[in-house]
Amino acid sequence: MSQPALFVLIAAAVFAIGVYGLLSRPQLVRRILALNLMGNGVFLLLVAFARRNPETIDPVPHAMVLTGIVIAVSATAFALAIVRHLYRQTGEVSLGEDRPR
């Protein structure tokens, strides 16, 4: 198996694990981690794509990944802040069903 294809496969697997975690885990911190996994899967994919052509490295995906990491950090920090507030107020670390009419 060629190296890029291996990276693509790993990236897909990481993304899929993230999706599975997000949908199956009730705990919020785990869900946030799962989202990060998904993000990392995409980043890995982009970096792998940058090497498609062995002679030249495409800088565009690198720029995208750098920007993406910055965004992922801020989103994660924000999500964790909400979790902390929620924990302080209710002592809960997961979302129940809320369906008041």
């Binding site: 989103a75 924000f78 929620l86 979302l95 129940g96 809320d98």
Partner: peptide, 11 residues
């Protein structure tokens, strides 16, 4: 807490 929960779900 209701708003926080709703916001988290939204996020």
């Amino acid at each position: 807490s209701a708003a926080l929960r709703a916001g988290m779900r939204y996020l």
